[in-house]
Amino acid sequence: MWANQSSHSGLILESPIIIVDLGLGNLGSVGSLLDRLNVPWVSSEQPVVGTIYILPGVGAFDHGIARLRSTGWADFLISEAPTKAIIGLCLGMQLLCEGSEEGAESGLHLLPGRFRRFAGGKTAERILKVPHMGWNVVSATAHCPSWLEHSIQNSRYYFVHSFYYEGPDEVAKLGETIYGFGFTSIVGRGKIYGLQFHPEKSHKFGVELMRALLKEIGK
């Protein structure tokens, strides 16, 4: 477990943000984003009580679920979810939902919806490459709250994923991105959010979105 010690912050939080360390990919960049926001954080391989959890991650769905279970984080997050805030990034978003075509395992079911693979495809000039990799924009859906709509305007975010969100609950779909067709790139219900892209790798756009999101869920 490692942590930073920020004394001053534009955001006032009750306790450090907990970064769930599944050993999947690059936690350091989530930590540096939070450093830029000047908020205290702790990353931990074992469950630690907090008020806001960030679940980052890259890689395969089943491997991610297996890590969540073996570390005890799966049951812990499920028990914390009714009263606490959880933000899933990229694979983390997928793990918070119900499941994915990529794997056989069940997700945490903390958000509605499942993930399907981009089929690929082509027009006369171009192939729809998979993964969807690069900078793309997010537009507000009908149910996007105004603070979020404001934050995602004139912004762009870094995406890299082969599976996209599909869900039954229109109210939970907050942001949409077009890659060949439109898919939900921000999902949220209560204080649980999933972002399909990588705010920690999206320059000031990602920093500002996380500032807005933490401010909202820290209320």
């Binding site: 693979r117 981009f118 089929a119 690929g120 495809g121 082509k122 027009t123 192939i127 067709f181």
Partner: peptide, 8 residues
């Protein structure tokens, strides 16, 4: 949306 998809 109705365009046939290939590949993948």
């Amino acid at each position: 949306p109705d365009e046939p998809k290939v590949g993948g």
